[in-house]
Amino acid sequence: MTKPPIELTGIHKAFGELEVLRGVDLSVERGEVVVLMGPSGSGKTTLVRCMNLLEEPDSGHVRICDCAFSCGASRDGRGRARLMQRARQQTGMVFQQFNLFPHMTALGNVIEGPRQVRKLPTAEAIALGERLLDRVGLADKRDVHPSRLSGGQKQRVAIARALAMEPEVVLFDEPTSALDPELHAEVLEVIQELAGDGMTMVIVTHETHFAREVADRIVFMDGGVVVEDATAEAFFTRPSKERVRTFLRLVDHSGAVVDAPAPRVGEEAV
């Protein structure tokens, strides 16, 4: 067995006074689909952002494939920026707000990484881009700018953009939260297909139904720590912690939070 592609140890992160992560250890095995769940403010978005160092932990160790980082006091200095770029090339990220490049077409978005970062020849990058757009069902939107796409289509282009780096792991930060309910399915289907292809993924989501179907493992967070880490089956049928049982009661079958506790100030938005 090779080393897990993502390994976090002793991760702490605070935004000012607010301690968002208070000592998290988590590793993600190759081919595994891990879903991060938890109430708003539990630190799951911050945690997934630590997995490609978009958020720099205050302390702890992050290993992303063959790149290892120490954070905080023992933070490694020289060559870090380059190492970070390498780590990020091996992890794709899909954002809640899509973050497509608005001045580029759908294809332009997808081939930007292959062209500019992986330095593929143009023809090869275009072939790859077209293949990926086809895979997310948007071959016909090749030359369309993001402003002309629906939210669901934007997110699918964003997934194709992440895949174009041929990453070891794809991270999803609430990929459907900004979408109208009727557009969730088309995005979730694409993610599900990726899971079927054996892609390693970490997904932050509130969609319990989807989580149950797609996840190998569910990691439940609350108050900046991991409360439960179980197989999807065990998590939903026999959660060991009262906190998880309460959460599952509050969330209806479609995934909407019916009566969540008031979110704490400024957390998930960071």
Binding site: R88, Q89, M93, N99, F101, Q116, V117, M165
Partner: peptide, 24 residues
């Protein structure tokens, strides 16, 4: 989010500036 999206595909700072930020 544009900076973040560019760094998430491993794009270096200056190239991000030139390709992604500057045109917008």
């Amino acid at each position: 989010g544009q900076w973040e999206a560019a760094s998430s595909i491993g794009m270096p700072y200056w190239r991000t500036f030139r390709r992604i930020i500057f045109p917008q």
